[in-house]
């Protein structure tokens, strides 16, 4: 589904990713762990298509397409979903209106008819229940005045609505208490199918107690330096990142 080959990316002339390789198949959950500054969030931003980053070499193939040739919105329509580490507050744009526009643009891209108001609302009801998001939040402005936990749950709610092929969770656990963490993880697990894949980017092992990965990769200094099963996360937790560095 996703194949990243020898990817080099830099921002403001500073190289962050230095030859990253990663292969993700449908139905798999991959965790990317690593110390601060290793390039975890850069990888997430590059996948989503943030323009601040310059790809100096390498390639990303996503379901047979050259991802780097696609615009931000085209990637989303093809099925890439980034759950933001810091979801953006957008005053004046209602959550519902935003999601409806997004869904219909994605559906149009996939050759599906636009949803009726009724279909859309029943979907909102169903999916917001999944992450225990108060339905009243749906009518508020995007993320405006949401608590940290509400913002993260709103990300997973959007993911549930948009049904991506590849979900990239960028430090979704940061700033979450244990209850919110459980709810978010449960949402992600419910959405898992044999056709989609999840990339969990995290600093801590904690989230992986709830979202159990098939593979754990250690990202260090812009490269994946170690790959293992879920037990690698526990080993990292125990020994710390210094263990990798040495």
């Amino acid at each position: 589904m996703l194949e990243i080959k020898a990817l080099h990316a830099s921002i403001n002339g500073i190289e962050i990713l230095k030859g990253l390789n990663l292969t993700v198949k449908p139905g798999e959950v991959h965790a990317i762990m690593g110390p601060n500054g290793a390039g975890k969030s850069t990888l997430a931003s590059v996948l989503a298509g943030k323009e601040d980053y310059e790809i100096t070499s390498g390639e990303i193939v996503f379901v047979g397409k050259d991802l780097l040739e696609l615009s931000v919105e085209e990637r989303a329509r093809e099925g890439v979903f980034l759950a933001f580490q810091y979801p953006v507050e957008i005053p004046g744009v209602s959550n519902v209106n935003f999601l409806k526009t997004a869904m219909n643009e994605i559906r149009e891209h996939r050759g599906l008819p636009a949803l009726s108001a009724k279909e859309f609302l029943s979907l909102v009801k169903e999916k917001s229940a999944l992450v225990e998001l108060d339905a009243s939040l749906a009518s508020r402005a995007v993320n405006e005045g949401f608590s940290g936990g509400e913002k993260k749950r709103n990300e997973i709610f959007q993911m549930a609505m948009l049904e991506p092929k590849l979900a990239v969770l960028d430090e979704t656990d940061s700033g979450l208490d244990i209850d919110a963490l459980r709810i978010v993880a449960q949402g992600v697990n419910t959405l898992k199918t044999s056709d989609n894949a999840t990339l969990v980017i995290t600093h801590y092992q904690r989230l992986l107690d709830y979202i159990v990965p098939d593979y754990v990769h250690v990202l260090f200094d812009g490269k994946i330096v170690k790959t293992g099963g879920k037990e690698l996360a526990l080993e990292l937790e125990e020994k710390g990142y210094d263990w990798i560095k040495s």
């Binding site: 919105e73 979801p87 209106n97 997004a102 643009e105 994605i106 959007q158």
Partner: peptide, 28 residues
């Protein structure tokens, strides 16, 4: 707001449509 624009686009909304939404919000 570049962050807001990116956020909307990252959900599949075209740049033109995202701009329109943000302009509408600005003038609401």
């Amino acid at each position: 707001d570049a962050q807001a624009l990116f956020y909307l686009q990252a959900r599949g909304i075209s740049k033109a449509k995202a701009t329109e939404m943000l302009v509408g919000a600005f003038c609401a």
